[in-house]
Design a protein around this nucleic acid. Structure first.
Lengths: 211, 211
DNA sequence: ACCTGAACACCGTTCAAGT
DNA sequence: ACCTGAACACCGTTCAAGT
């Protein structure tokens, strides 16, 4: 066990992240712990703190990997779609499938509450923004006449909506039975939202009651 | 402190649930613990286990109260709306506002992973279904020509979508800055989805590629 | 310099023992 | 019968001590 200079800091970091992913896949989000990760890589808990600030930092780096993998899935899916509407649908379905396939890794991104003072680092926020821009790019194709602000809002609505379907589907709520149902809901969301949106000047957004 | 027969089981149960809510509001989801709840009501941890199966059971009963309160908010909001579309929008906004106002209680419903074998009791699932039916009822008004299955799907899409907006907005993702932005996204989601949906025969749902 | 091992302050849960 | 107090098996995090 305990040894010196067997691994560089970067090696230990990489080993820990892989061990965390394995643990996550095997035991779920609740099964993740610094002590288990340390045991898995043959080091003591203390050593993890030489390489990570704390568990939240470690998790953030696992999440970064997850986001990168999701980005690859999305890029593959968006390729070779007949049109932009199909592109958006493909992105939505791919998100659902990724979440289903790597459920615990996906849950880890959302199901952990960080300390409220802990601000997400810039590189992380940009990684999230990158995912989100893939939707915006499809929308630019789909509705070039709309303003960038309109498209940005629509992209956020669609992204949030698909995310919501995933959240409820993968936790078996609303009788959304598994991935097939989740994909149906995602299709319906995107198809109908886009149909309404493309015919909509955006002016209704000015009409807000003060209820 | 330690006393006998000061309170009935039901009284202890009610005290514990109230203490849990207070703790939740004060310290957030992460601040909730059996030991703190017990201390707050002047009993020992062990006593909680005479009245609840375990922490998950206690949380489930806190969640039931939260759902009941949300149902009241939704009912008040749906009253006196000019039409069904406005009714759906009012439900959406009210959901967002409730989540914002009682953030920790709302998070508790979703942010805790129960053991995978733990099945939600029937009374709880029916309470969730009840919320959801409020949307379906508005949709029945809005599009009486659509089948019940169509409306059920649309209601789930809208509910999931609004939920997704909340999730991402209240965790400050996608640059969704707080409740005002969340309400804008919710409005856009509902308005455009309904516009697309009401003009849509539903046949596109049959056209599914096998990507 | 690198890593350990033990400590600290917390958890959820159980259960013999007290009244 | 009701409730406690201590125990058990876990946590995340820190840090003096060892090599």
């Amino acid at each position: 066990m305990a040894r010196r200079n067997d691994h560089s800091r970067d090696e230990i970091r990489a080993m820990a992240l892989s061990a965390a992913e394995a643990l996550l896949d095997r035991e779920g989000v609740a099964g993740l712990s610094t002590r288990k990760i340390a045991a898995e890589i043959g080091y003591t808990v203390g050593s993890l703190y030489l390489v990570f600030d704390n568990l939240d930092d470690l998790i953030l780096q696992v999440n970064a990997r997850t986001l990168a993998a999701l980005a690859e899935w999305l890029d593959r899916a968006a390729l070779a779609q007949p049109d932009a509407a199909a592109g958006v649908r493909a992105l939505g379905r791919t998100y659902v499938r990724y979440a289903d396939r790597h459920r615990s890794r996906w849950e880890l991104i959302f199901n952990r509450q960080r300390a409220s003072d802990a601000v997400l680092p810039d590189w992380y926020l940009q990684s999230v923004a990158g995912l989100f821009e893939r939707v915006e790019r499809q929308l630019a194709d789909y509705a070039p006449q709309r303003t960038a602000a309109d498209r940005s809002l629509a992209a956020r609505v669609l992204w949030s909506g698909v995310h919501g379907v995933c959240t409820l589907a993968l936790s078996d709520r609303l009788d959304i039975a598994g991935i097939a149902e989740a994909e149906r809901l995602t299709d319906s969301l995107i198809e109908n939202y886009l149909a309404g949106w493309v015919n909509n000047s955006g002016e209704w957004q000015m009409v807000r009651e003060d209820t």
